[in-house]
């Protein structure tokens, strides 16, 4: 039957599109074909490049492997033991604290600017574009821009001497007491715009009438912020907070390009990359990755569960 229809369609017109011909296949069969053809490639990609690597990581973390040789020696928990008895590892986690602090500061700055841009203000779009712009800039370009900014003869020191604060001039990236502040502030500079736009989007979705009603009732600016604005952005703020925490632990590009992890600016991901690709110790690097994966995974899972509970 399907065959006859098929032929008659072909005969009727060669210009007729494929859709005139397909309905002759039952919806049940169509469904099977569609589900298979729409899902097979995406699922293959998902398995090969996300799920399998994660599982493989656990296996590799129990082996000694140089990345090339066909044999991987099973070493049990010794990679994990090496990580936990290595004092350098703790300093790497300490470095994340700078980015964590920077990330929190960035969120509050973003919220502050979002509230400003949501109020009656001239040249709103100009300010908004400028403040967001760093986010769309290439990460390596940003790292180079700030290498100049923080260099001994650089922009920051020039500004300091212009305002008569020569005594505050430093080799920002060369001083291990300052380098992480410099790098974390670069990170704030880069990411603040994104948080700002996200907050602003939520603020703009609050109906104007609510604010007007509050004004008529004589609510002060601070109370309006406290009781109307804050509750409505709570959820997005939490989401951003989670991203900040996992971002702080997995920071890579900016310190890698600007200092290569020198002067105590080593981060967990730089250290992992070095362990694998510089020192060819894939087993140890896998164990480090597993730890990072567990931390970030737990944070994300915790946040999801929290959100679900409340809905």
């Amino acid at each position: 039957m399907a065959n006859i229809n098929y032929q008659s369609t072909l005969k009727s017109s060669i210009n007729k599109s494929i859709r005139d011909r397909l309905p002759t296949i039952s919806y049940k069969t169509q469904r099977k074909i569609l589900l298979f053809s729409f899902l097979i490639v995406p699922l293959l990609l998902l398995c090969v490049f996300t799920l399998y690597p994660a599982l493989q990581l656990f296996y590799l973390s129990f082996t000694y492997w140089d990345g090339f040789s066909p044999t991987k020696d099973w070493v049990g928990f010794s990679n994990y033991r090496d990580i936990f008895i290595n004092p350098e590892m703790f300093s790497v986690f300490k470095t994340s604290l700078y980015y964590l602090g920077g990330g929190l500061l960035q969120l509050f700055l973003a919220l502050y600017f979002a509230v400003l841009l949501n109020s009656k203000i001239r040249a709103r779009n100009v300010f908004k574009s400028i403040l967001f712009m760093p986010y769309i800039m290439n990460s390596v370009a940003i790292a180079l821009i700030f290498t100049i900014f923080f260099s001994p003869e650089g922009t920051l020191n020039t500004i300091l001497s212009l305002v008569g604060l020569d005594s505050l001039q430093h080799s920002w990236l060369g001083n291990s007491n300052l380098v992480n502040y410099a790098l974390a502030s670069t990170s704030i500079w880069r990411h603040m715009g994104l948080s700002l736009i996200i907050f602003l989007g939520v603020l703009q979705s609050i109906p104007k009438e609510i604010y007007e009603a509050a004004k008529i009732d004589g609510s002060s600016g601070w109370n309006t912020f406290r009781y109307i604005t804050l509750p409505s952005i709570k959820k997005v703020f939490e989401l951003n907070l989670i991203l900040t925490v996992s971002g702080a632990i997995s920071v890579f590009e900016i310190p890698f390009i600007m200092t290569k992890g020198a002067n105590d600016s080593m981060t967990f991901v730089i250290s992992t990359v070095d362990t694998a690709f510089k020192y060819s110790n894939f087993g140890l690097a896998s164990a480090m990755s597993v730890i990072l994966l567990l931390i970030v995974g737990t944070i994300t899972l915790g946040q999801r569960l929290l959100l679900k509970e409340r809905d």
Binding site: Y52, P53, A54, L57, L293
Partner: peptide, 11 residues
Amino acid sequence: MIPSITTQVST
């Protein structure tokens, strides 16, 4: 929940 930056060693 698996950031790709964490799995590069095996990828």
